[in-house]
């Protein structure tokens, strides 16, 4: 959108600079969609609420629209979460979790739990891969003293039984994938939108 006044264009450019900074983590298509919608909104707002000169009209429209850091943070967090749910990509998931932690205590707690489950999922995958390399150190162990452990064990006490043998790898890979998929699907259940009235 090109405005007539040089100062109005400068103000708009500064506003968009902040916008681009906030929407940087998103995919190109999402970034383009957001900037187009913002441009449309600013244009409509300016056309309907003239305030004398163009700079004042623009400032009024931007004030009514709100701080991009505030409302776009929600859009970015939502879009990133959507992208993560859709792609199951761990990089998008990590970014979505980072963006969504800090959006209210209860939600942060839920996202923290989801983050911990992802870590457990990656740990399961990791020990499954390492099992053939360290067959005597990694496994599912129990003993008569109440030990129940899965993963890497440094001191294996006498009388400890390892249950899965080389089946440990496939079982834990399946477990890792299941945790990852279920956790990603559960992300959908966490409500994320905030609205200011």
């Amino acid at each position: 959108m090109k405005l007539h006044s040089e100062n109005a264009n400068k103000i708009l450019a500064l506003y968009y600079k902040r916008v681009y900074q906030i929407i940087k983590p998103l995919a190109e298509a999402d970034r383009q969609e957001i900037t187009m919608e913002l441009t449309s909104h600013i244009y409509e707002s300016m056309a309907r609420n003239p305030q004398g000169d163009e700079v004042t009209t623009l400032l009024y429209a931007l004030e009514k629209l709100g701080e991009p850091d505030t409302f776009l943070y929600d859009v970015v967090a939502e879009r990133k979460l959507h992208q993560a749910r859709k792609t199951f990509n761990p990089i998008h998931l990590a970014s979505a979790l980072a963006l969504n932690i800090g959006r209210g205590f209860a939600k942060s707690l839920l996202f923290f739990v989801v983050g911990v489950v992802y870590i457990v999922s990656f740990a399961c995958g990791g020990v499954a891969v390492l099992k053939p390399i360290f067959p005597n150190k990694i496994g599912l162990y129990t003993n008569s003293n109440g030990l129940f452990a899965a993963g890497w064990i440094t001191n294996i006490a006498p009388g400890t039984t390892e249950w899965l043998g080389l089946w440990f790898s496939p079982v834990f890979i399946i477990l890792a994938v299941l945790l990852y998929v279920i956790n990603t699907l559960l992300l959908k259940l966490i409500p994320t939108t905030k609205t200011t009235i």
């Binding site: 919608e37 409302f71 859009v75 939502e78 939108t193 009235i197």
Partner: peptide, 27 residues
């Protein structure tokens, strides 16, 4: 978006902070 905000205000008197409508529409 802008028309929706206008309608909201006109029919319910809700003065929604304009930017916050977009995360909601997104959801």
């Amino acid at each position: 978006g802008y028309e929706l905000l206008d309608k909201l205000k006109e029919t319910t008197g809700y003065d929604v902070a304009e930017g916050t409508i977009y995360p909601l529409l997104n959801r």
